[in-house]
């Protein structure tokens, strides 16, 4: 069944505060083989995905949406960066569905997640398009 097109324009509740640690910054850098930045205090360029992905998970598991991750294809991703993430930041992600399209059995969901510190400082905007196709588990 296609998703409710009325979801377009909806903004979801912010994700729970995510405390960025030196350890998580190092783990992310190591996973992509990158050298530490600023003595390990500064996160990799695409680190905002950690919070944005939590926001996307919130979207997928929302009772009004309810789609399984392995039926979802990440179509595109873009970041606009205000400043790099640093160890010690406490971050939340607030996702808005910018638009929805349905065609050929696929729902295309365009999302925007504002990643900010818990005191409201903007860090990055993460734009993602997700394609959802229902199918056998």
């Amino acid at each position: 069944m296609a998703l409710d097109p009325g979801l377009a324009g909806r903004t979801f509740a912010p994700t729970a505060a995510y405390a960025v640690s030196r350890e998580k910054v190092a783990e992310f850098a190591a996973a992509i083989g990158a050298a530490p930045l600023d003595d390990g205090e500064q996160a990799s360029l695409t680190f905002p995905i950690v919070v944005a992905f939590q926001a996307m998970t919130g979207l997928m598991t929302d009772p009004d949406v309810g789609i399984e991750l392995h039926h979802v294809i990440h179509v595109d991703q873009r970041f606009e960066q205000t400043r790099p993430i640093r160890a010690g930041d406490r971050l939340t992600g607030t996702l808005t569905i910018d638009s929805m399209r349905h065609g050929a059995g696929v729902d295309m969901i365009s999302t925007r997640t504002e990643v900010a510190t818990t005191d409201g400082g903007h860090v990055a905007t993460a734009y993602a398009t997700l394609a959802y196709r229902e199918g056998p588990a």
Binding site: I32, T46, H74, D76, Q77, F79
Partner: peptide, 30 residues
């Protein structure tokens, strides 16, 4: 992960610019 590949693009970009604070935007289609 598409994001793994984009993270590698970001790693290359970081190598080129030196300081990732200089990056305004980066993105791609998978």
């Amino acid at each position: 992960h598409g994001m793994y590949t984009l993270a590698l693009a970001g790693r290359a970009l970081t190598t080129w610019v030196g300081d990732p604070a200089r990056v305004i935007s980066v993105g791609a289609r998978f």
